[in-house]
Design a protein around this nucleic acid. Structure first.
Lengths: 144, 144
DNA sequence: CTAGATGCAAATTCTTTGCGGTCAA
DNA sequence: TTGACCGCAAAGAATTTGCATCTAG
């Protein structure tokens, strides 16, 4: 456990928002200004191997990292990409239910809710209100 | 609907295995040898926009494409990455269940089973048998 | 002292974009 | 005829790798 790995782990725990590799980089860089992106990636992988963190492959673009290694579900905001935990135990019956419905040997499952976080709900309400009086193209700058 | 789009759609339907962009490319190239990767990507996007196909963001690396646009679940092989359909209607109660458990406005969910496809189950059995007589490193050339 | 970790730069992989030429309505 | 589409090449974004150097044990 080197200095950079310790700092990386601490920052992921502190951020608690399921950061991506570059969000970790930005946070760690404040404490270790000379750290490089490759160290971030290599250490994130090492921390995964040691079971200190886990990777979330939400959506398909960037990987998110989670200091909570217990099995749990997530909600993802469809607009800003924010990821948060859902406070329930995973439903193991889902795996049992599918065991007889396919010829795969089922070894796990992943459930992800998709939604709008509170901030983006507000933004949406604002946009809908604005569309009533302004031309839509004027305000629909953001993508979903 | 141009020639290349028609061929792309036909090949995705024919493949029926949730191909990735480059698998589509390889298949289409047999019929349209001069087609380019950018056309593949652009036409895949257009076909999505028109609701002719849908994208699956399984795991986190490549996108897979599916000619079946009805909402449905998938199993993914943890070893070879193969993706197949699961023959059930999505469980809408999952979204209702989580509505009160988080402050997100829930707009959808994604459930993905993880397992070993029949071919990889066989490979695994073979490997386990082999490990009894050969040094593990000799046979564990494949990655999960 | 030495194996393993780091920083830097360059390479990979997947996907997107700019642009001049082409095709179908 | 003309706007949408195509192929090619180059650009981007995320991640990985090669290598010389450094550092913790």
């Amino acid at each position: 456990m080197t200095r950079q790995r310790r700092v990386i782990l601490e920052e992921i725990r502190k951020l608690d928002c399921h950061p991506t590799a570059d969000e970790v980089y930005e946070a760690v860089r404040k404490r270790l200004p000379r750290i490089s992106m490759s160290t971030i990636y290599r250490d994130l992988e090492a921390l995964c191997d040691w079971g200190k963190i886990q990777v979330l492959e939400v959506g398909c673009s960037k990987k998110h990292f989670d200091a909570d290694t217990k099995d749990h579900y997530h909600v993802r905001c469809a607009r800003c990409g924010r990821v948060e935990n859902l406070p329930v135990q995973p439903f193991s019956y889902l795996e049992r239910a599918f065991r007889d419905l396919c010829d795969y040997e089922v070894i796990g499952h992943r459930l992800e809710l998709l939604g709008l976080c509170p901030a983006c709900q507000k933004a949406k309400e604002y946009r809908e209100a604005a569309e009533g009086i302004i031309d839509i193209d004027e305000v629909s700058g953001e993508e979903v």
